[in-house]
Design a protein around this nucleic acid. Structure first.
Length: 291
DNA sequence: AAGTAATCCTGATCGC
DNA sequence: TGCGATCAGGATTACT
């Protein structure tokens, strides 16, 4: 599932193609992919046609492409959801399950096609206004404004995060998945980080020591950075980068999807439990709730 | 108010 | 062989 590393891979791949490129045509093949767009698809199409794009930016799992020459600053906001892909293609190239298509013209690279492909349609594209954040002079889409900075953001405040964590009456995995506390982490990297830090997913945040909290944060960063290094994680063809190449680092997974297999640390079997309507993978020996 | 459950989706896979 | 049930989960919404 696309999490921070996968979205960042998409952003990096998209950047040279869209920065400075003009949108020449827009096709909406499935209106459900405009779920997060305020107006009808005609509005989406009209407002994008002829517009020039700038280099994409990201916060957590949200990606946006700023648009030139608008009365108020605005951007195309992209969320990949569970199965979204942004595929950069030669003009005329079709992909199965393409929901939205952009034809673009780049001054250096010529005509290209951007296919937004999404099997499960949990992802979306939208035009959204850019608003100024309180703590910095950055412009971000209004629908992203409640999302916290991600752990790889230089302005991410560790101390503040740990304080908010401790103040919450919840368990650690819920907190890691709460994008208003820390963004970019999904089910895969939550399980991987918790395994690395030897923390049980149901450890109450209030009883997590500051030392353990900092250690967990360090493991989160290590896991995300490693995945990013390896081009993002992808098990099957659900996730592909902008060129359609599968980028999965599934072979490096220590806990996620490893139920029944020996824990790489202690050799005892990894267990999978249902939690928050999804799977939680962990080593019951290495990861225990500590009071 | 804050925490949690329900909801949206489709295709691969499973069991009978 | 066929077909219905199950599973996958990010973010928003609708509750408690």
């Amino acid at each position: 599932m696309p999490e921070l590393p996968e979205v960042e891979v998409v952003r990096l791949g998209l950047a040279p193609a869209v920065d400075g490129a003009t949108i020449t045509a827009v096709t909406v093949l499935d209106e459900r992919s405009l779920r997060r767009h305020a107006g009808p698809s005609e509005d989406f199409i009209d407002r994008l046609s002829g517009r020039r794009m700038r280099a994409p930016l990201r916060r957590g799992k949200f990606l946006w492409i700023p648009l030139d020459a608008s009365e108020h600053p605005e951007a195309i906001v992209v969320h990949l959801g569970m199965s979204g892909q942004v595929l950069l293609r030669e003009p005329g190239t079709d992909d199965p399950r393409t929901r939205i298509r952009l034809e673009i013209e780049h001054p250096d690279h010529g005509a290209l096609r951007v296919n937004f492909v999404d099997q499960r349609i949990f992802g979306s594209m939208a035009i959204d206004e850019l608003v100024r954040t309180r703590d910095a002079d950055q412009l971000i889409p209004s629908q992203v404004s409640h999302i916290a900075r991600d752990p790889l953001d230089p302005l991410f405040d560790d101390t503040r995060f740990l304080a908010r964590l401790r103040a919450k009456n919840t368990t650690i995995k819920r907190a890691l998945l709460d994008q208003t506390l820390v963004s970019g982490i999904g089910n895969i990297y939550a399980d991987e980080s918790l395994w690395a830090a030897r923390v049980h997913y149901e450890q109450p945040t209030a009883t997590l020591s500051t030392t353990k909290g900092r250690q967990l944060l360090a493991e989160v960063r290590a896991v995300l950075a490693r995945a990013l290094d390896e081009g993002g994680t992808s098990f099957d063809t659900q996730y592909l980068n902008v060129n359609g190449q599968s980028g999965y680092f599934a072979h490096s997974l220590r806990a996620y999807g490893q139920q029944g297999k020996p824990c790489p640390r202690c050799g005892r079997p990894i267990v999978r439990e249902q939690f928050m309507n999804r799977g939680s993978h962990f080593c019951p020996y290495c990861q225990r709730v500590r009071v």
